Amino acid sequence: MPPARKRARSYDPAKTRAAVFAQFGTVREAVRRLDPGQLALPTRLGDWTVRDLIAHIGMAVTAVHRALDRPAPPRQDVQVVEWPFATAAKSAEIADFTRNLAADRPDLDAYLTDVEDSLRALLAAHPGSRLLETNAGALPLDDYLVTRTVELVVHTDDLNDAVPGLEVPYDRQALAAATRLLADALAVKAPGGSTEVRVPPYAVVQCVEGPRHTRGTPPNVVETDPLTWIRLATGRLSWADALAGAKVGASGERADIGGLLPVMS
């Protein structure tokens, strides 16, 4: 008998929407404190400056706007957990769009304010079931908003890395949704039940082919904190560096998941 198909994780639409606005709001507040010298700082994202990064954060949110401008597809054809695997396909196009946007929007605070106001209006006008054509495929609006928590949390971390002492906070619900989506994506990428990946307090998934444990402590365990997991899953931190820095615990012969990372890039 084949193994039972795992039921897809569900996300509370109201909490997701609140998380998107909360995380975007913390970024907006931080941007207001940045001076021209800080905006010109380099980031860990190639040749992007902090200004480019902030423009990209706004662009990640307006992906909702652009999707709603297009006709609704006839049916959903992917699950939200598949979205992380589609992010690299248009990376060059996104980089060009970001640089042009940063140049065209000198007042970043006004730009982010417009983004937030227009998103609120769009979400008030469209049901969460409205299908969107995304880079991953056709998804409901509510599911696509879950992917925006990943974008916002990941790039908030990029911003904190680039500007010493900035310390933009992470909304708990946004961090939880981002952690869970990327953990579930790992389980899709490497299906199985021999290894348990724990990211307390938000996610536990089983993955990797091999003997499946049924009770007690599993023989292969990986455990880390949410931000370290997000950095590993998005290529901001290597598996080797995480182990060397004691940022991750790994026990068991199938606990080396470095070859499965990053999940998205």
Rank of each mutant, 00 (worst) to 15 (best):
P3T: 04
R5K: 15
Y11Q: 08
A19R: 04
F21Y: 01
F24A: 13
T26M: 14
V27R: 09
R28M: 08
R32C: 09
D35F: 09
Q38F: 06
L39G: 02
R44F: 05
D47M: 11
L53C: 10
A55H: 14
A55G: 15
I57M: 14
A60H: 05
V61A: 00
T62L: 04
P71K: 06
P73N: 01
P73M: 00
P74S: 02
Q76E: 12
V78H: 10
Q79G: 10
P84K: 03
F85N: 12
S91M: 15
S91N: 15
A92G: 15
D96W: 09
F97Y: 15
D104Y: 10
D109K: 07
A110P: 00
Y111W: 11
S118W: 13
A125N: 11
L131C: 07
L131P: 04
L132M: 13
T134Q: 08
T134L: 09
G137I: 03
G137L: 00
D142G: 08
E151V: 02
V153C: 08
V154R: 09
D161H: 13
E167Q: 14
R172G: 04
A177P: 07
A178T: 03
A178L: 06
L181D: 07
V188H: 10
P200F: 05
P201T: 10
P201E: 05
V204Y: 11
Q206I: 09
Q206K: 15
E209Y: 07
H213M: 12
G216P: 06
T217H: 14
E223G: 02
I230F: 14
L232R: 00
S238I: 05
W239Y: 12
D241F: 11
G245R: 08
A246V: 07
G249F: 14
S251M: 09
G252E: 06
G252L: 01
R254C: 03
R254A: 13
A255V: 00
L260V: 03
L261Q: 10
M264W: 08
